[in-house]
């Protein structure tokens, strides 16, 4: 018995010795780039650190520790609720339109038609474009007087709004750009789901005389729910982390109408140097993302079908 455990220990030691050179780079990276920053971020969030005093000073915490004051200040600030409300507006508009657009893209690309490869390339070009370039291009398209969109609307006798300069239209405009940019990306994910559906279901439905629309509603959509679920989770997480398009197109304006959490964190941390406040803000964001992801995970049992 004793010998057996000793052997076992020896084997475990040997196993660890063999595995360690393979794990070392990645593990070191995990500690330096993920775990250690996570720990420090938690500590900073409890301080009023302004980025100047050294974190390694022995009396750093005596001088700067303020407990949960940052969290209290953020959660009672109008600004936080404004940013959260803006994010909510974005999500309410973005998620359904993104889902509809990417379903359409996926459905079109799943048809065995001539020239489909061409359309795939076209739909994918917005995805390849960096967010910075896409935002610049759209800023120009959305320019109120000399932009393409209002020019096109003018053909139909519609006088377009000021888009990014108009408090009510700025967020919908950001949503429009995001849907345009993301539809190809999520469309391809959904396409792989459609391609994976067993063909015999469709054959059976055809024999029963079902039309194209019925087949889509009764077969494709239910069997696609795992992919749709994935798209919703990723889309939701991305929505909470909205950033480059805001920075380039509106900078949070006009009048705070497009301020969102990551933009606030960036400005507090790297423009106003309120590092403690920014760190606390980032933890609140983390918590919100976790809660929403958990809710979606829980909710999936009710509508996601796994076809095994």
């Amino acid at each position: 018995m004793k010998k057996a455990t000793k052997d076992n220990l020896k084997r475990q030691g040997a196993g660890l010795l063999t595995a360690s050179p393979f794990l070392l780079p990645s593990l070191a990276g995990m500690v330096i780039f993920s775990l250690l920053p996570l720990l420090i971020s938690g500590m900073i969030s409890l301080t009023d650190w302004n980025g100047l005093d050294k974190l390694t000073d022995p009396d750093f915490f005596q001088k700067h520790f303020i407990g949960l004051d940052n969290f209290r200040a953020i959660l009672t600030s109008k600004e936080f609720w404004n940013a959260l409300g803006n994010t909510a507006e974005y999500i309410v508009l973005y998620i359904p339109s993104m889902l509809a657009a990417s379903l359409l893209v996926a459905y079109l690309l799943s048809r065995p038609r001539r020239g489909i490869g061409f359309f795939r390339v076209i739909y994918y070009i917005p995805v390849l474009t960096s967010w910075v370039a896409a935002s610049l291009i759209w800023k120009s398209v959305l320019a109120p007087q000399y932009g393409a969109l209002n020019g096109i609307l003018g053909f139909f006798g519609i006088e377009g709004p000021g888009w990014l300069l108009d408090e009510h239209w700025a967020m919908p405009a950001i949503v429009l750009v995001s849907v345009w940019k993301d539809a190809g990306f999520f469309g391809l994910i959904l396409l792989s789901g459609i391609v994976g559906i067993n063909k015999t279901y469709y054959e059976a439905a055809s024999i029963d005389g079902a039309g194209g629309w019925t087949k889509f509603l009764k077969i494709t959509l239910p069997l696609l729910t795992p992919s749709i679920f994935y798209v919703l989770i990723v889309g939701m997480i991305n929505s909470f982390q909205l950033f480059p398009q805001i920075m380039i197109m509106t900078g949070g304006g006009p009048n705070g109408a497009t301020q969102v959490m990551v933009e606030r964190i960036y400005n507090y941390g790297f423009r106003y140097y309120r590092m403690g406040y920014a760190a606390a803000f980032s933890w609140i964001l983390f918590a919100i993302i976790m809660v929403f992801t958990a809710i979606q995970m829980k909710g999936q049992e009710r509508w996601v079908h796994y076809d095994d």
Binding site: S34, P37, G269
Partner: peptide, 13 residues
């Protein structure tokens, strides 16, 4: 873990 949580300490490091 969202990048925003780790970016401030990483910046310091």
């Amino acid at each position: 873990i969202p990048t925003q949580v780790t970016m401030i300490p990483l910046f310091v490091i």
